[in-house]
């Protein structure tokens, strides 16, 4: 869209300048009743070329108008589609938010700030941190993907080329083509897994479970999920949500002593299952948030694009008409001047 617009504007300006040149050089002569100006204009050596340019530029404007009108139609259609999809995902998200929130609330008993001081001594081996970056597969949705990738990049160790630095191993798992393309350039060394076509069908819990299994297979000490939180149709907030790894959870299991763990196996197994459930649940919530944000961002981006296209079309239409009139005026002047020359 950007490139298209830049080209369009410059050609408009050229056409406009050419049209002004015609009008200015022809009208005084015509009004004066066959003065030297008209004679000069007609006899100038590049008359033929000017006439050619005159018609070609009119045609160029017409072509641009047509292409802008069709781009405008496409963006408008995309906006409609995004709006329809947004309604669907938003309804689904409204139903799923309490589910993720109620699981989250239980784990909020273990505040993250408190954790740093208590567990540092306990963790001797390199800490494994997994960044899960959720982006969309398709573009034309504003800056949601850029924002999330920027946030994720800030978590990477500065200037490090390998995943392990200062005893902390950082890995990236990317969901969505756009994030993969954006992060591959700078941080391909950190990649472990990438997913695509996640948002092709509506986000479902089984899908989240598959991704969660992949996360758990890497047994990280900390999982950070990056996604766009859907605040409203015009505001999406890039968010990072840290989840504790199983080991840290087990080390701090005393926080949950207020609760009785019901199981026919030992209670540590319940903790493991609960942790896996939590990862899948939070991932599901984040996927839905991001899917909703994507559609909302696409809707507003396409709305802007449609408005811009309409604006450009208006300007070009004005331009086209003005030039058409200039051409007619010039032709009239030529006829009048020719007739008066014959009368002499």
């Amino acid at each position: 869209m950007q490139g298209v617009r830049a080209v369009g504007l410059s050609s408009v300006r050229r056409v406009y300048a050419a049209a002004r040149a015609h009008v200015q050089s022809s009208t005084p002569g015509g009004g004066g009743g066959g003065g030297g100006g008209v004679g000069n204009f007609l006899s100038s050596s590049n008359e033929k070329a000017l006439g050619g340019v005159r018609f070609a530029s009119l045609k160029a404007v017409r072509n641009r108008m047509r292409s802008i009108a069709s781009i405008g139609k496409i963006t408008k259609a995309m906006k409609m589609v995004a709006a329809a999809k947004l309604r669907g995902t938003q309804a689904r998200q409204d139903l799923s938010r309490p589910f993720a929130a109620s699981v989250r609330q239980f784990f909020d008993l273990l505040p993250l700030e408190k954790l740093g001081s208590e567990t540092k001594a306990g963790v001797a081996e390199p800490k494994r941190r997994l960044l899960v970056v959720i982006t969309s597969d398709r573009g034309l949705c504003g800056s949601v993907n850029t924002n999330v990738c920027r946030l994720a990049r800030q978590m990477l160790p500065h200037g490090a080329a390998s995943p392990v630095s200062d005893g902390v191993e950082t890995n990236i798992m990317v969901i969505g083509d756009k994030g993969r393309d954006a992060l591959q350039r700078t941080s391909a060394a950190f990649f472990t897994t990438t997913f695509r076509d996640v948002f092709k069908a509506p986000v479902s819990f089984p899908q989240a479970v598959i991704i969660a299994e992949e996360i758990l297979a890497q047994s990280p000490d900390e999982v950070v999920i990056f996604y766009n939180r859907f605040k409203s149709a015009i505001s999406q907030v890039p968010t990072q949500q840290p989840l504790l790894g199983l080991q840290l959870l087990m080390d701090n299991a005393s926080v949950f002593d207020g609760y009785e763990f019901d199981s026919d196996m030992d209670s540590s197994q319940v903790m493991v299952d609960l942790f896996e459930f939590e990862v899948a649940t939070q991932l599901y919530g984040a996927l839905l948030e991001n899917a909703t944000s994507e559609q909302a961002a696409r809707m507003s981006a396409m709305d802007n694009a449609s408005t811009n296209a309409a604006e450009m079309l208006d300007k070009l239409t004005l331009q086209y008409n003005r030039e058409r009139q200039a051409v007619i005026t010039t032709e009239l002047v030529e006829i009048v001047a020719g007739a008066s020359a014959l009368q002499k």
């Binding site: 689904r92 799923s96 589910f99 989240a208 199981s263 026919d264 196996m265 599901y284």
Partner: peptide, 28 residues
């Protein structure tokens, strides 16, 4: 009682007399 599924909210802040759930070690 809150009763949630990933794709559905069955009950939210509903006041009920009691609930029986199928816990791993038997009905609770």
């Amino acid at each position: 009682l809150n009763f949630f599924c990933p794709h559905q909210v069955i009950a939210k802040n509903r006041q009920v007399v009691s609930v029986i759930v199928p816990a791993a070690s038997g009905l609770m």
